[in-house]
Simulated scan of single mutants.
Amino acid sequence: MIIHFIAAFSLLSHVVSPVKHSLKLIFIESSGVQDFVGVLWADETELVHCNTNLNKAEPKPNWLKEFMKSNQEHNDLYTQECLHSQHFFKDTLNVLRRSCSQTEGVHTLQRMYGCEWDNETEEVKGFDRYGYDGEDLMEFNQETQTWLISTPCASIVKHKLDNQQIRIADINHYLTNVCSKWLKKYLDYGKYFLQRTDWPSVSLLQKTPSSPVSCHATGFYPDRAVMFWRKDGKKLYQLTDREQIYPNQDRTFQINVVLKLSSV
Rank of each mutant, 00 (worst) to 15 (best):
F89D: 03
Q164L: 13
S262C: 14
L47N: 00
S210P: 00
E135Q: 15
P61D: 01
V95T: 10
R167H: 10
L259M: 13
G190I: 00
E116Q: 09
T151A: 06
T146Y: 02
L148G: 15
L236I: 15
R224L: 10
D136G: 04
M227V: 10
I168H: 14
C50A: 15
K65M: 05
L93W: 06
E104D: 15
H87C: 09
F193W: 04
S85P: 01
T121S: 13
K260R: 04
Q102L: 13
L161V: 02
V213I: 02
P59H: 07
S263K: 12
G219T: 04
Q102G: 02
P247A: 05
V257S: 08
V226K: 08
M68L: 09
I166N: 14
V19M: 15
D250M: 11
V202P: 00
K207H: 07
Y132S: 03
V15K: 02
S85M: 12
N141E: 15
T252I: 03
K65R: 12
Y237E: 04
E29G: 09
L64E: 00
H173V: 00
Q195L: 12
D136K: 01
Q72N: 06
E143W: 13
I2K: 15
Q164C: 11
P61N: 07
V19F: 04
W41V: 08
S214Q: 11
V157Y: 09
P200T: 09
A57M: 05
D133A: 07
K24S: 05
L64C: 02
L25P: 01
G32I: 02
L64R: 00
H216Q: 13
E58W: 03
E135A: 06
T144H: 14
Q238W: 08
V95A: 04
R224H: 06
S262T: 06
M1N: 05
F89S: 04
E120C: 01
I26P: 00
C215E: 03
N163M: 13
A57R: 00
R97D: 02
K181E: 08
Q195F: 05
T252M: 11
C100W: 12
G134C: 14
L205H: 15
G126F: 03
P209G: 13
